[in-house]
Amino acid sequence: MGFSLKGVGLTHANGFRALRDVDLRVACGERVALVGASGAGKTTLLRVLAAALRPDTGRLSLLGTDPWDASPATLRRLRARIGLVHQAPPIPPRQRVVTAVLAGRLGQWPLWKSLASLLYPLDPEGARHQLARLDLGERLYERCDRLSGGQLQRVALARVLYQQPDLFLADEPVSAMDPALSELTVALLNEEASRRGVTLVASLHAVDLALRHFPRVIGVKEGQVLFDLPAGQVREAQLRELYAAEGSVPMAGLAVLPDAGQPAAAAPPPLRCA
């Protein structure tokens, strides 16, 4: 009960073809990293997986349901089971951290509870618990515009952790964090997904992070799947092709020795072709 895509294509409103003929099958509990250059279509793919963008071709099944065949009520319940950490956290600057985190459960709470929680936070302990895992427990009652970019990103993560989705999607969840924090945060996401047995898909800019933490890595290029391999089988040449236009393979660059038995992780130093 993960998800599957068959021949999925998506054309944006301005006529740009962001996805073409994507075939993917991800089983329940798998942890997958999406890598690819800027503009490759990672965000678009994640939004399709979040039932937020409707593909114009192909078949899509999320958690056993075709979202675009379902009734509005079913679709809403399905969406409540999918959590997407957005690339740019869409959190109002004046909202307090506790409210932003508790908003993760709006899809599960009855309306009266959502509204009451605005007047007096109903589960501050739940919010604080998730924030504390990201080292932000102290900022519970702070306003979001008083946080740094990386801290705001962690609030967005805490929201989806608090949502406890069955399909955990993260769009560059560590792009505003330093290498050490990125490492910890990606590890935390993987640990959470394993512990709860849910499917995790995260797009990452740093290829080494993806190779170190995720069992399966998918390379996206120009709206297509270039490779879909276990992390250990990703070769340097494939990464070089993935980032051919950039001229180098992006890395988080943290000097952490990868585990033995993950050859590709040790392999590619920054490639400078230009």
Binding site: R81, L84, L106, G107
Partner: peptide
């Protein structure tokens, strides 16, 4: 800025909750 509300609706929230949050 409708992105916040849209993000909430995409996570299964109802309209009134999306309005307030």
């Amino acid at each position: 800025d409708g992105r916040t509300a849209r993000g909430l609706l995409e996570a299964g929230s109802g309209r009134v909750a999306a309005l307030f949050y």
